[in-house]
Design a protein around this nucleic acid. Sequence first.
DNA 1: CGTGTCATGTAATCAGTTACATGATTCA
DNA 2: TGAATCATGTAACTGATTACATGACACG
Lengths: 188, 188
Amino acid sequence: MSERGKSRYSILGVLSSGPKSGYDIKKMTESSTAHFWAESYGNLYPTLRRLESEGLVASQLLPQEGRPDKRVYRLTGPGRNAFREWLAEPVEEAPVRNELLLKLFFGAQAPIAVSRYHLERIRARQLELLETYRGVERWLASEHAGHPELPFWLMTLAYGRHHSQALLDWSSESLAGLANVAEQKGED
Amino acid sequence: MSERGKSRYSILGVLSSGPKSGYDIKKMTESSTAHFWAESYGNLYPTLRRLESEGLVASQLLPQEGRPDKRVYRLTGPGRNAFREWLAEPVEEAPVRNELLLKLFFGAQAPIAVSRYHLERIRARQLELLETYRGVERWLASEHAGHPELPFWLMTLAYGRHHSQALLDWSSESLAGLANVAEQKGED
DNA sequence: CGTGTCATGTAATCAGTTACATGATTCA
DNA sequence: TGAATCATGTAACTGATTACATGACACG
């Protein structure tokens, strides 16, 4: 089991850079960890409550005018410790489920055009992603130059870059392979 | 939503090569799609029942001596159609959750040795995986040479190869980056 | 006047894992 | 004698998504 029951840590992590409301946390994850970690409100708010009941965070209601009151959460001592401990624990392997590979695995049961379609779609998607990563990388380097956390942020971006590039190479290679299969079958 | 509610299709897919019991299906997925799709008994058996009640598969109880009776499922016409339709549908993007990246993202909050540890572990893991893939590739090519589905099976293996190689490159690069950070901080 | 932002939350639902339960047979 | 294989299933639990509900203000 991995990536399960870990929502708490993404929240504690975001709070480690200062107190935030649930709404703020959502915003932050959307603009920073979005491409490898997402949270929904339906999970976020109940989890914050649970964390508070466990003493890992503490909250304060901030009355506001003109806009809804906000409940601001901050990390407690035990919360910070729990987070640090989790950081050092080995990463658990996640159960994999890849729908694209499942479809390709059974690709012989459909016209070749079907598999080609899936591969072309993923190819296009990786090109998009690579563009996005490049943009974020430039933005980070200019906006947060010298920030002590920058090297770590760039590392997660580099992951995305390598990953997308690999899928790009793989899909091109596979499309070429498909063309051969189609030729032999006289399909297409 | 992706890779969710898709268990049914992995089952239908496996059944498309002939009737099988729940136990057989588990075995087959373990030896073929294991590295991108896993099923647990707790999910498999109830799903088979559901598929039967929907008319996508039909079952027959086979009494056996010396060993437990088995219930053998086979694909029905509607089942085969449902599977083919799903094959052609575009792959949905899955919500991503990557614990390793989450830990690295917050890496500045722990000693550098922590991040190094995570990277070294994943590096070692990819080396193992690459070995496994190579072995399976050789086995497939010799054992199933000429099989019409072989090109598709090899495609999924190639995915694994590209993916692992990318993570390998990325982790090496990141470890080098970490060494620089450590130097500047005088840590290590 | 409609859309987007700010802001919090609940309820219904879903998918899936883990652990448990049973029990004969075969093999080392 | 103990473990592995064959074989099917249920129950408890967990984690998370989606949709729903509310409501003021700002901006074009």
